[in-house]
Design a protein around this nucleic acid. Sequence first.
DNA 1: CATCTAGGTTGACATTTCTCGAATCAGCCC
DNA 2: GGGCTGATTCGAGAAATGTCAACCTAGATG
Lengths: 126, 126
Amino acid sequence: MPKQVTPLPHTVLGEDTPCCPPLAQQRLPAEVATALAPAFKALGDPVRLQLMSMIASAENGEACVCDLTPAFDLSGPTISHHLRTLREAGLVDAERRGTWVYYRARKAVLSQLAALLASGGGTTAA
Amino acid sequence: MPKQVTPLPHTVLGEDTPCCPPLAQQRLPAEVATALAPAFKALGDPVRLQLMSMIASAENGEACVCDLTPAFDLSGPTISHHLRTLREAGLVDAERRGTWVYYRARKAVLSQLAALLASGGGTTAA
DNA sequence: CATCTAGGTTGACATTTCTCGAATCAGCCC
DNA sequence: GGGCTGATTCGAGAAATGTCAACCTAGATG
């Protein structure tokens, strides 16, 4: 039985999380805030934000760690740590194929976060 | 030595920041990621996320600290600290009127962040 | 001016986060 | 099997963060 990369269902955030009444439309319950904050926190680091963008904008919708790592002036373990953070926040999925590991963005989750921040319809852009 | 050292504008995020090509559409430049990450980091705490929601969803578009503080099981200084973090991240504005201080959400900035996370094209959930 | 209240600032502490080197695990190829 | 490469995990140290108690500032009111 080949053990795959999918480690812990630590995920915190799934496609079904009740997260999406826009933040500016009604007050966010404490438990929802607690569930969502880790996702924003994961994006709150320049390196992870770039990683997220590289993964989300990759050609086939997935990016190899071997391509991500050399894009930064950081050690392999450090990049691996940041990727794990993104994974545990539910923002990306990882899959091992042969020697390489590929990361894929969970666009549904990103969309949920976007919907949360979107101003329901007020002073959007001045 | 001339004290020219300080230009460090911790504002980080203004309405004119070039932040908005969706994250999944093209790779985020390092400097943009560095400019935007603090905003996400600011939202990456449950208390601040709730504060942000309370402010953004407030009746007149603004919320008094005197209403925000008692909503949490935290000391005044702690709430003040979180509000300052939101302010320095460019997510809210503060205004003093008489005895009280009111916070107001910068919806344009929130919209920018939302646009960044929104899957630009059709690739929303596939 | 004295005093009271609403917020903010300072200083300190415990916890977490970021980063790396060393070790380990997972596949490939000779 | 033995060795090689890619990626993760482990352990540790420096830096940042969340929280509070104590103190200070801005306005209002007597």
